[in-house]
């Protein structure tokens, strides 16, 4: 009885949070002299209005889901891997690199794509390992390490695009020379989404779900995250587990970067990570680090992103509105959680 009532109150508070977030975003729109209902309608139509639009949502969903999956691992280990943005970027750089090296070779395109994915994963892990090293042996908080490495990753991208990898003639913000079509991930006919990306995203979150919920690895990681000292005394090799968490998150971020190159942009562009790393952190916070909720909530966020692309054209509103709504949602949920706990405690 106690349980059902608390499940109900949970649900009510989550509903309240959504209402609050919508109210706040609407207020922002009213201040910007726009009709909120019109805007929401446009977002829904822009994301779910056609099979094409929905496939675009899926295109955003896969890298976001991969980033979220990775972040669930580092969070479980008690680590704030803010460097995930840079890790996605490095994944993209490594994938591009592998493709550039191999594109004129005699290897089959399929194999080159596989190698592209693997090197993307490697790139993400490499970048994560710098943060891990600083954290574990240098005592540098992973938030600072990650922030620093994000800047370096951005700088590296720009340098590559305007330097060694510039297009024939002159480098431009539009990125490197696109790869030939045989090196693109094959998509569903007429759509932009590739079944292979979907498979990678779904397998990714499934693996993380099983790993965190059912295995010794997940439980030990949780112990390390909650109380490193006690975990050590219980015989868990805490340093190794922290490394594993960083590397695993780097791997997933790297895969997200690889998907961006192989399945979406087919080249390296300046902001190749599309902010999915930071958005992934929002998703992870919103779902309170429950892997089971990652897929649907990431889908919702992806839909908001895609749906708001039309806003500047149709309503002269900035497309960052989706960001406002996403941010407001996370804050509202956290706020409501705090309120709920206070109220329950007082009772």
């Amino acid at each position: 009885m106690v349980r059902t009532s608390s499940r109900w109150t949970n649900f009510v508070f989550q509903l309240l949070a959504i209402v609050l977030a919508l109210a706040f975003t609407s207020l922002v729109m009213v201040l910007a002299k726009a009709n909120p209902l019109e805007a929401y309608r446009n977002i829904v139509v822009g994301s779910l209005g056609s099979i094409n639009k929905f496939s675009d949502v899926l295109v955003a969903w896969v890298p976001l889901l991969l980033a979220t999956s990775g972040l669930l691992v580092t969070y479980t280990a008690g680590l704030w891997n803010i460097g995930v943005e840079g890790q996605i970027t490095l994944g993209a750089i490594f994938t591009t690199w592998a493709l550039r090296v191999l594109q004129d070779s005699t290897l089959s395109p399929g194999l080159i794509i596989v190698i592209g994915f693997l090197s993307g994963a490697l790139g993400g892990m490499l970048w994560a390992s710098v943060v891990a090293f600083l954290r574990i042996y240098g005592g540098v908080n992973e938030i600072f390490g990650g922030l620093g490495m994000n800047f370096v990753a951005t700088a590296l991208t720009i340098w590559l695009i305007f330097g060694p990898w510039k297009r024939p003639g002159i480098g431009s913000m539009s990125g490197t020379e696109p790869f030939k079509e045989t090196l693109w991930l094959p998509t569903f006919a007429g759509l932009r989404i590739s079944p292979w990306s979907l498979v990678i995203g779904i397998i990714g979150i499934a693996v993380i779900y099983i790993l965190l919920q059912g295995t010794y690895f997940g439980l030990k990681l949780k112990a390390v995250g909650r109380n490193r000292r006690a975990a050590f005394l219980l015989g868990i090799p805490t340093t190794q587990y922290m490394w594993a968490a960083f590397l695993l998150c780097g791997l997933f971020a790297g895969l997200a970067g690889a998907v961006q190159v192989l399945g979406v942009y087919h080249r390296l562009i300046p902001s190749i990570s599309s902010g999915y790393g930071f958005l992934g952190m929002l998703v992870a916070m919103l779902i309170n680090y429950q892997p089971a909720w990652a897929a649907p909530v990431a889908m919702f966020f992806a839909a908001l992103n895609i749906g708001s692309i039309q806003l500047p054209i149709v309503m002269k509103l900035d497309s960052t509105l989706s960001g406002v709504l996403q941010g407001a949602l996370v804050l509202a949920v956290l706020l409501m959680d705090g309120v709920r706990q206070r109220l329950l405690r007082r009772r």
Partner: peptide, 9 residues
């Protein structure tokens, strides 16, 4: 609760 047990587990 600091060294022996793991709060939250």
């Amino acid at each position: 609760l600091e060294e022996g047990l793991i709060p939250g587990l």
